[in-house]
Amino acid sequence: MATGPNKIRLSTNPTDDAIAALQIGDIVYLDGTIYTAREGVYMRVIEDRVDLPLDLPAVSAANFHCSPAATQHDDGSFVLGAVTATASFRFSKWIGRWLAASGAKLIIGKGGMSPEDYRDHFVPNGAIYLTTVGYGTGALLGRGVKQVRELHWKKELGLAQAMWVIEVENFGPFIVESDVAGNSLFERENAKIAANLEAAYEGTKPAVLKRFGETDDRKDEMI
């Protein structure tokens, strides 16, 4: 690449100004503390109304949609190897209430969320979405982990769904997928690709037997 994208170091409790300065496509590395929360934690907090086990967003405003490749020894110590995000679109039904309850400003995950989620939930809460790269730069992200600080709800949710609180430094790379105005990098790219799809499909034909629920609009984002 002749001209690389912008690279930015960002706090996990970023100021409003720092968030507003980010543009979609910027590369971000995080410093501070992040925590993992996905469907297990969301259901427990939002549906079962269990109190949060830590002070959010004071401890961290960065929610990682992730289950680390990690284990806890009998003496309570942790071994954490690689960390990689899981696909975020599946958490749409909880994200609005979660942003309100947790005060999260950074949602980190795989693949972004829908334009409606950005408009209805992220923008009003001043939050943005950072996507992991690859996917699967798990080893690079693992290098940015300084230590596991706490592990909550291991017994209730299992290692994969538990809430890991992790201290990080130069933790990345991530790409800014949605900005403070709710613009989406994936949407922008998808629109560009859609222009070429008809040509790519030339010389093919639809299946003789259709399936229920099928869309033939391949410009759809599917999520």
């Binding site: 992730c66 289950s67 680390p68 490749a69 190897g81 690689a82 960390v83 990689t84 995000a85 899981t86 790269v133 690859g134 996917y135 699967g136 730069t137 798990g138 080893a139 690079l140 992200l141 693992g142 290098r143 790379p173």
Partner: peptide
């Protein structure tokens, strides 16, 4: 970034992706 990641995994002897 992926190529860097494979090298990091081997060097550190850690899983290349967090979803193993």
């Amino acid at each position: 970034a992926m190529l860097e990641n494979y090298a990091a995994a081997k060097e550190d002897s850690r899983a290349m992706c967090g979803d193993t």
